[in-house]
Design a protein around this nucleic acid. Structure first.
Lengths: 205, 205, 205, 205
DNA sequence: AATGAATGAGGCTTCATTCAT
DNA sequence: CATGAATGAAGCCTCATTCAT
């Protein structure tokens, strides 16, 4: 948010702290993470760490804010003037990619929500809700135009969230059940088929 | 596991502790929960609580074990000799009901998995994997018999898990985005349509 | 001390408690021993144990008193009218036997003294001192009569105590250094030779 | 072991902690000593104390290691090329001096052994045993050369240990029985006579 | 910009003892 | 005689944060 001018060393240390914090918070949760862990992983002493961020909570909040900055980008990128099915599928695929490329961020977010979203409740019922409502209008428009099968747009979006984030948030379970870790392409194909079938379903009658 | 005979007071207090523990652990995670919270909610002093369970971990583990005892029941109940589409949809609906009726259990499980499943890693790659593999054979059989569209059975099961558990695990987000809490029927209808479309899809060509 | 009439079961349980207490206190010290340990080893519930002895301290004190009842017997048995050298040597041998036969009692006593003798300080400067002084007179008499070499009687008695109790109190060290546990006869022979040489030493001149 | 460079304040506080710990552990044993006691005596807060030593056990272990570093020095100093009787007597006198000058260390050691030597069992059957065996060879050599009377060297060493350490470990008893505390010279004279008589004894026949 | 030192609050657990039956 | 239930006090240790330099 705030863009204070930073020296190079400041930028480097702040980045190291955030990286270490992301690692720890996504793995152990807020309470389960200690400043010692973060300081150690960031290569700083604890007081020095607190020179960059005033408190543990500040690190966590900074991570969450940074996350929210990009978390919605894939949905924002879904444009009304594209091909409806492809737009929706592209959105789902972007989300799946994020689960692959940024699983820690996904788990950080999941943790926050699980705990009741204490830090971002406002964001959820504010920015997020507004964006989803806006995209719901788009989706309803596509359905009204006969470009996709009629569908509850909110729950469609929830479905895309859950289907994709699952691969990051429940990664250990996926790995354990499949017995291997190279399942990404299969997941993508499956997701494509699942959504495509639904969006192109003929209305009975 | 071992069912020692318990006095009435023991049964009552153990139940109170487990109830309080479920509440707290599902909300704050293992580390974020304190024995004081649990003791207070259970109406016991802290040492008295430890008279019934030897440690914080023991409470958590007992909850997890109790959960795992029933967690897989819906999947187990999916029978090879029923109507394929209806069996799968019934399974999904049972899972959705569980998200409605036992959201704390779902969040407890989600928390455990998010942290890397430290307590139940063995269960995941043992019992769970075996059950899923077994059901995958059934699903593949249905597809081979032309009763459902060909589908990756493992990822289909993951989809059902994620789609349904999402409503428990991300409940605050769902509520915030929808602005209301009576969305259960809509979710069910959406889920039904989504899966039905996929299972009955005609293979192109 | 107090000889209250006891039922058979009372006597049995008191004995079991004292046996278990001796075992534990001699091994872990007063603070390092828990009532749970004693109760478990005695085959009683903790409240039941406290029915027989009102407190942990009472068990410890009872053991100490029982010990003191016999602790001085070997010295008491050293008689002025016997053969001086043989009387003294017999005393030393009786003490050595006690180290072999009652090492836990010896360690219990050593522990108490090491801690500053909080429970038996009075006994030390009372009964014990009187007895030692009395025997010192006897020893001095023997020396004056030319039956043994002149010797400081108090320090002679200290020597016998330390030389013999060492084999009980420092048993693990003795075993570790010797690499075997069947050293009792050697210790006896050594002790005999050591004291005999001193008592029969010709006064130079 | 590792001699990390320490700031002056570190050296001071570590020394204060070790001094306080020695006092307490030698008096009350490991279990009987509390961190509060040590912290209070060292003039530090409890968490600050734990800033210097990671645990109660670490303090105890550090004390024990420091003790073992010098505990054997008197025996090591007994040289094969000196006068046998004087070497042995000098050893005994050095040990007696240690009982006078470092009684707390002696009691700390006695406590550890009494409890079964949980921290230093390895040392006893390792370093200690090797050293004693080595000196036993020396003593046997002296006896074979006719310089001292034949004697079991291991038990001779045990005798010296017990006779001297007794004055530290059982100090309260010695004081109580003698009714005074200035007995050191008498003890030395007695010890000298006792050992000298044994070492110079003519073999009968 | 950085660190060594310090601490108050709290967390889990133990334990001697008491209460009620 | 005996036990299940309960507790207050204390013990070890952790941790976010502050202080001093």
């Amino acid at each position: 948010m705030s863009d204070k001018p930073q020296t190079r060393i400041q930028a480097k240390n702040r980045a190291a702290i955030l990286a270490a914090g992301l690692d720890a918070f996504s793995k152990y949760g807020f309470r389960g993470t200690t400043l010692d862990q973060i300081a150690e992983a960031a290569g700083l002493s604890k007081p020095n760490l607190l020179y960059y961020f005033p408190s543990k909570d500040a690190i966590y909040t900074a991570l969450l804010e940074r996350l929210l900055d990009t978390w919605l980008d894939p949905l924002i990128a879904m444009k009304a003037d594209g091909d409806p099915v492809e737009e929706i599928l592209a959105y789902a695929m972007r989300k799946l990619e994020m689960s692959r490329d940024y699983p820690r961020e996904s788990r950080l977010f999941a943790n926050e929500i699980l705990q009741g979203a204490p830090h971002i409740a406002g964001h959820l019922s504010g920015d997020l809700r507004a964006l989803v409502d806006e995209k719901a209008v788009v989706i309803n428009g596509w359905a009204a135009a006969g470009k996709i099968a009629p569908v509850d747009p909110h729950h469609l979006i929830f479905s895309i969230w859950s289907l994709t984030q699952h691969y990051a948030d429940f990664e250990v379970q996926v790995n354990a059940v499949l017995g291997r870790e190279d399942w990404y392409d299969d997941a993508g194909a499956h997701l494509d088929a699942l959504l495509r079938a639904r969006l192109q379903a003929r209305v009975p009658g």
